[in-house]
Amino acid sequence: MWRIRAIPEVCIGCGLCRVWCKVEHSDSKNIHKAFKPNAPETISCVELEESGCESFAMQCRQCDEPLCAYGCITGAMTKDPDTGLVTVDKKKCVGCWTCILMCPNGVIKRDERNGRSAIKCDLCKDRGFPSCVEHCPNDALVIEESPMNPLAAHSAPLSGSSRGDENILFSEEVDDDE
């Protein structure tokens, strides 16, 4: 499965990731039209974090244990067992924003353009490749390919291990003292 990862050391804080994310999530998907004064509002699913001269971009990490999906009251937010992508079913979402409260990275947005629905990074699945990554001028956003977490996917366990494999769900230490 794919994840987008930031490399803060080389991020120059230009914000092009946000620009291209907005283009991708606009009606026209055209950079000339998306930012016209009378163009419909569009949303960036990328946050640009800045402090002093440090910066990095952050979008959904498609968590193995997605708290947003676990907290979703309607079943609209789910993790695709095949692709690992965490997606919102706009038809089911009622805009309660529990996902926004659950996401520790603060990367789920409100989309109130047409009804109320959560919106988040979809890895530009219709486009084929994430636009923010493609347009980052300094390679400060990269695609990370990681094996599916066997516990997140409904498939047989994989032998490959990614960082954090030794920790299983929410805590490595178990001290039951109650």
């Binding site: 990862r5 977490n149 920790n167 805590s171």
Partner: peptide
Amino acid sequence: ERIHSSGRNWQ
């Protein structure tokens, strides 16, 4: 951890 982790351990 937030930038690198696979989002599995939330404590």
